[in-house]
Amino acid sequence: MLRFLLRRGAMLVATLLVASFAVYGALDLAPGSPIAALTGGRTPSPEVLAELNARYHLDDPFLVRYWNWLTAAVTGDLGQSIPLRENVSTLIGQRIGVTASLVALTSLIIVVGGVGLGLLGALRKGPVDTGVVLVSTVSAAMPSFAAAVVLQFLFGVRLGWLPVLGTGTGFADSLKHLVLPALALAATSVALVTRVTRTAVREELDKEHVQTAVSRGLPWSSVVRRHVLRNAAIPITTVVGLTVASLIALSAVVETAFGLNGLGAYLVQAALNKDFAVVQGISLVLVVAFVVTNLLVDLAYALLDPRVALGSRAS
């Protein structure tokens, strides 16, 4: 297990290095200069330009700038937003809570809804199962922007139950503001998790070792819990984990649609404003979150399936 962890740790660091290089490099290659955004498109005088370039170290060679950015980022300093003259870390800190809450609430909906529906479909054959398949088919066909419009219209405009725009203040109000965005973000993923759960449980039910458990006279509930669900948990955890990781990237669409002041929406806005430091900073945060989630999925997989850990020891 220790070797497994060390190996995964090293892989994590390598992935992050490559990803950070890509994030920094891509923006460096992007057309336009941060100075242009700052001066509002007017051409500044050579003295001003030189002065700005020096202040933001824009004349240093690329690798030197990357290195400085990276080493600062490790300590939590993501540089300055040139247009806003603010610390990128501060700007991110103000918005990360919204995105984190959105992703957390969405994950909860995905786990409860997707796994719950999948189990229901797998264990209750007949009309219940048909209903589950129907719901998951409809919800699978709902990209989050379409789901956002439908939900806003239905619950916000027609029924007036929930707020459709903004972040809200205070815990209860903020949560209320997150419900529709989370549902919109969850739609496709719930369908995916439902299907994977249903298939995994069905497959496990047909396994010979489940027949052994039945043949020993164990109560059906403990056969299901200790053998069917326990084993189906392996593929289910994997797909839930990967889905949650993908939410981190997809949150931008929903945050924009619902006017939430989160990282995703801010990333889009900063890109439009050519606020390079902010784009780099947010991208880095999102990449780290994505990679770490993936690592957690792998760890969960190794913990749930004893055969995996052995495989890594043998290699």
């Binding site: 396994k207 010979e208 006279g217 084993n231 749930l304 055969r307």
Partner: peptide, 21 residues
């Protein structure tokens, strides 16, 4: 279930018939 508990089955393929996890 009580009946099944009194009748023990030894299956052909133990690797498939014992929960691997």
């Amino acid at each position: 279930r009580r009946h099944r508990a009194k009748v023990a089955v030894v299956f052909q393929d133990p690797r498939a018939h014992i929960n691997p996890v």
